[in-house]
């Protein structure tokens, strides 16, 4: 029962975070929402693995946790690089 409630809450949370991802005034808001969704997806995969009785889902959750971090960091880095080069371009 608690598993089902958790799954539904996580789904709602992802939907709500999507609003911030679309609305977010700065690029950082979007990245924040992406990071949030990534963590929630890791959790939802783990919970769903238990819900369906297939714990091998956890491998996927693990991959997600890794990849999510790498992609958030990578996106940040690129944003930084493009910003710097644009600033240098102006000056």
């Amino acid at each position: 029962m608690a598993l089902i409630i958790t799954t539904i809450t996580l789904l709602v949370v992802i939907a709500l975070a999507l609003i911030r991802a679309f609305a977010g005034p700065t690029v950082f808001d979007r990245i924040l929402a992406g990071n949030l969704i990534g963590t929630k997806v890791v959790l939802i995969i783990a919970v769903m693995g238990f819900l369906f009785g297939r714990p091998d889902f956890l491998d996927v959750a693990l991959t997600y946790a890794l990849i999510n971090f790498i992609s958030v960091i990578g996106v940040l880095r690129f944003v930084e690089i493009t910003r710097r080069s644009r600033e240098e371009d102006k000056s």
Binding site: I14, L18, A21, V27, A33, I37, I45, M48, V60, V75
Partner: peptide
Amino acid sequence: MLFSIYGLISASFFMSMDA
């Protein structure tokens, strides 16, 4: 970034379809 979110969400679709 939205692209990446799309990836995440579609993966949960596949998840729920047992693939």
